[in-house]
Design a protein around this nucleic acid. Structure first.
Length: 530
RNA sequence: GGCGGGGUAGCUCAGCGGUUAGAGCAGUCGCUUCAUAAGCGAUGUGUCGUGGGUUCGAUUCCCACCCCCGCUACCA
């Protein structure tokens, strides 16, 4: 059984996740679900990045000790991920004792291998934030802290450096030999040009005088600074340091899903850290885009931020509509490798046009026609078995196209194909054949027509399974397809169903009718703005 | 400033040397009524960012300029 190990970025628990954070997890979840379907032994890792000064300060503000605060935030994060049906296997908290121990083993190893040395770091420091600011931040804000508007001071402190510079050539060579290591390609080009034009400097991986965090084993006055701790969840989460066999089974990771803003840490620093400890680099890093919020009144597209007051929490959308609608919107409307936008009006448009009118209504019309005219059972004793209606070419080729899009993380294109090449053509086919008329003169022919529509729904259910796990199951279980739902894979969609000559509606009915799969959203009722 | 990507219908985008520049959504008009007031069909006078140039011919190639976005090192 092939393994598939994937991770998402671990999040700072300074505040609860917003829709942008969820976008990343969603894209990762589709991949995890797809790989499970296809027979991989999947390990899907997520977690929170807790060992930061900001976390301990936020906890202090709330009068909590950091651990209590972190545990509570972790619980809140997980409840959001659960509500979205994110199918992670393990959720790591970096404040956990296990992570800390494994982390210390790693850094000790890198130290023993000679890639860590003591030096001093000089930079612009904000005493209020208790952290260093970048030169760019200094320049942009005229030497003031962007948060506190206090003058930044020049500060020097002893620290430990990781010899990132030693891996420059090896990294470039690695990118050369593994062209799809960094995706999408635009990010790859950025990283390569960064290294080629500016080179890599050694990085400070320690902090002095922090209570909260992981002590450096060879000098306990220091704690490990974020990246050198956070990135390690990707291996401590699968047993690095205390469960060698699990670690060897899953490492190297098949893909790290991250935001485009942290590409460099994952594509340069992380492989170098691993090499310094004698481990392999991950196979692939996928940097997705961001979600922006379109202001409903002004039409201005804004970055999601607390100060702009435009933060939308996933639970807000889920409780108004559903997790499936949430998943569909972001997977369909926001191209995973690029940026996307959210607005309530666009949400309603996409939902109505595609989920309610196209998919949901197709199921309704099929089920109701079969129930009314055939007492819920279609049979076709003679002739060819009904085939799904696809726009062009053969069904297997269509399924293959969708598969390609899923495997390359182009989820919006996969969903677009399902819609345009399968569902819409099926609606068109019904219109052209008009089985509601045909049944009066030739019931057998009408049964063939409906059989083809039902076949389209079967194919759609299977292809949609990674995207909309609940909807896909409901669709599939509306009919008596005999292949067990747990065992279907993409290849199943391309083959005719095992049970050939009869198809029964088994969807629950109310007063002889099917309850809408996705009830339309009425914009005029607009309870959208909270 | 440097490097990279982009500016095409109201919106999101495809096209990237050649007949009258395309798709989806939204809008408008029909048809239909099996279905969630759903479905189907028809419907666009768009300076293809601006100005030059190459060419028989440019949205598509070259140059300049304007505008937007990303990266430019320790800020998920």
């Amino acid at each position: 059984m092939p393994t598939w190990f994937q991770t998402t970025a671990i999040d700072y628990p300074n505040s609860r996740p917003h829709i942008g954070t969820a976008f990343e997890k969603l894209g990762a979840d589709v991949q995890a679900r797809y790989r499970r379907m296809e027979g991989y032994d999947v390990f899907f890792l997520m977690g929170n990045d807790e060992n930061t000064a900001k976390v301990s300060r936020q906890a202090a503000r709330l009068g909590l000790d950091p651990q209590t605060y972190c545990n509570d935030m972790a619980r809140q994060f997980r409840s959001v991920w659960d509500a979205l049906d994110i199918s992670y296997d393990v959720f790591i908290q970096t404040s956990s004792e296990r992570h800390k121990q494994c982390c210390r083993k790693f850094i000790q190893k890198v130290y023993d291998n000679g890639y860590i040395y003591k030096g001093s770091y000089e930079g612009w420091y904000c005493p209020e934030c208790e952290e260093f600011k970048t030169q760019k931040q200094y320049d942009d804000s005229g030497g003031l802290c962007p948060n506190h508007r206090l003058a930044l001071v020049r500060r020097t402190e002893p620290c430990y450096y990781f010899k990132l510079s030693a891996f420059q050539d090896r990294l470039l060579q690695h990118y050369q030999q593994h062209p799809d290591f960094i995706q999408p390609e635009s990010r790859r080009n950025e990283i390569i040009s960064l290294i080629q034009t500016e080179g890599l400097r050694d990085v400070n991986i320690s902090r002095l005088g922090e209570d909260w965090g992981i002590r450096i084993p060879f000098d306990p006055e220091f704690t490990i600074y974020v990246w050198f701790d956070a990135l390690l969840t990707y291996i401590t989460g699968i047993g690095y340091g205390d469960d060698e066999s699990t670690f060897r089974k899953y490492w190297p990771a098949d893909v790290h899903f991250i935001g485009k803003d942290i590409t460099r840490f994952h594509c340069a620093l992380w492989p170098a850290m691993l090499w310094a400890a004698g481990e392999q680099a991950p196979r692939r890093v996928f940097a997705h885009g961001f979600v922006y919020v379109k202001n409903e009144e002004s039409g201005v597209v804004e970055k999601i931020s607390k100060s702009l007051g435009n933060v939308i929490e996933p639970m807000e959308v889920i409780s108004k509509f559903s997790s499936e609608a949430f998943r569909y919107y972001f997977l369909r409307e926001c191209p995973y490798p690029s940026d996307g936008e959210f607005s309530w009006s666009r949400f309603a448009e996409v939902y109505n046009a595609e989920l309610a009118n196209n998919l949901g209504n197709l199921l309704s019309r099929c089920v109701n026609l079969i129930v009314k005219n055939y007492e819920g059972v279609l049979s076709w004793a003679e002739g060819p078995l009904p085939q799904a209606v696809v726009a062009s070419g053969e069904l297997p080729e269509f399924v293959e196209r969708v598969r390609q899009q899923v495997e390359s993380f182009h989820y919006h294109l996969a969903l677009q194909a399902i819609l345009r090449e399968l569902l819409t053509p099926t609606n068109q086919y019904l219109e052209a054949q008009a089985p509601w008329k045909l049944v009066r003169t030739d019931a057998a022919a009408a049964a063939q027509v409906l059989g083809r529509a039902v076949e389209s729904l079967r194919v759609a259910a299977i292809l949609l399974k990674p995207f909309l796990p609940r909807t896909a199951a409901t669709l599939y279980h509306s009919f008596d397809f005999t292949e067990p739902w747990e065992q279907v894979r993409y290849a199943t969609a391309a083959q005719p169903p095992v049970s050939g000559r009869q198809r029964r509606v088994i969807a629950p009915l109310q007063d002889g009718k099917l309850k809408p799969l996705f009830p339309r959203i009425d914009l005029s009722e607009a309870n959208l703005h909270t």
